[in-house]
């Protein structure tokens, strides 16, 4: 009669740790970075695949469940080593703004993250042929100075202990002064790149949120205190540092939370020495938001009374302006300019 009691008790189970399964493109097997990763995860189950999309782009994957137990896919990028910047991202005044995709997806789990709507899977893809990215970038650089965001559809510094992409791009930028590289992060893992001498054309950018917002919406991320400590160390070491207050979220008492954030920043960081600031409210492609709503219903980020213009969903104009003006106003009490509003 086991069937009768089969599901009556509350069953106990544990979820596999992240990267319990590593899928490896057969063409990627001989790459040094593949060996590097496999040495870091000797216990993982290894599965050889023809192409990373055979796993990454399967139909109907459960994004939320995958996020609880992310797997890793090691692959070779064959083309598209550079993308032109999109309209919803800052270009910081550079005409030739590019980003690349060394890694797809992120170790963090932010409710507002567009990656949930962009990729069919929450598994992490790492491309192990960094040298091809570098070669293509240097080719493009021959056409003129360029700005390159290398931590774009991911958080590269959070993965630095697995494959040191950040270090490699710092070295590339150090040898090519006309290449401005931005490494944007929410991580506190500055120590992983601290051994490098500061490079003027490498901007280390930290995305900061009030602790309340981080606790609500930025799961798995380090707390504000840790991010600030990392940011401060980088500043003290002489790196150009950018602060991104993005996305600004309209939660209950949002003004208090953001006022508290700027106050904390002013108390702990010499804000005049920050390279620049970028401020932007929550915004997302309408299509991505639609897909995310299909996957999950557990976060109020999805249900605000937004409006959509030109395919981008964001706060209504009056709300957006109020939020931007409020945060920029707070910053302007401490710094005069170099604030970019997105």
């Amino acid at each position: 009669m086991k069937g009768m009691e089969f599901l009556s008790a509350s069953e106990q189970y544990s979820v596999n740790p992240d990267f319990s399964h590593i899928y490896i493109e057969k063409d990627a097997l001989d790459y040094e970075d593949t060996h590097l990763v496999l040495r870091k995860y000797p216990e993982s189950t290894r599965i050889i695949v023809d192409h990373y999309k055979d796993v990454f782009a399967r139909s109907g994957q459960d994004w939320r469940l995958q996020k609880k137990s992310m797997n890793l896919i090691l692959a070779i990028r064959k083309d598209q080593f550079l993308y032109s910047g999109s309209e919803v991202t800052p270009d910081f005044g550079y005409d030739r703004f590019f980003y690349n995709a060394l890694v797809l997806n992120c170790i963090y789990d932010c409710d507002y993250c567009y990656l949930q709507g962009m990729f069919p899977s929450a598994n992490v893809v790492m491309f192990v042929n960094n040298e091809d990215y570098v070669r293509n970038t240097l080719e493009e650089l021959k056409k003129g100075p360029m700005y390159l965001a290398v931590s774009y559809d991911t958080d590269l510094l959070a993965f630095e202990n697995i494959i040191p992409f950040g270090s490699r791009w710092i070295e590339t930028a150090a040898q090519n002064p006309e290449l401005v590289v931005e490494i944007r992060t929410k991580s506190a893992n500055y120590r992983a790149i601290r051994h490098h001498k500061p490079v003027d054309n490498v901007i280390l950018a930290w995305t900061l949120s009030p602790d309340t917002i981080a606790k609500l919406y930025e799961k798995r991320t380090p707390p504000l205190k840790s991010r600030l400590r990392a940011l401060k160390s980088a500043m003290e070491d002489g790196w150009p540092v950018r602060i991104c207050i993005d996305p600004v979220m309209r939660v209950k008492n949002w003004k208090d939370h953001y006022a508290g954030l700027i106050e904390t920043l002013a108390e702990n960081i010499p804000l005049q020495q920050i390279n620049d600031f970028s401020v932007g409210v929550f915004r997302m492609s309408r299509e991505y938001l639609k897909r995310i709503r299909h996957q999950r219903s557990d976060t109020d980020v999805l249900y605000h009374d937004y409006e959509t213009k030109n395919g981008v969903t964001t706060y209504r104009d009056e709300e957006r302006k109020e939020m931007e003006q409020f945060v920029v106003g707070l910053l302007q009490e401490h710094v005069i300019n170099n604030i970019e509003v997105l």
């Binding site: 979820v15 319990s20 899928y23 599965i47 796993v55 399967r58 994957q61 797997n71």
Partner: peptide, 10 residues
């Protein structure tokens, strides 16, 4: 053609 079940439970 290959198929991959997701295995999440330890």
């Amino acid at each position: 053609r290959a198929y991959y079940p997701d295995i999440f439970v330890k």
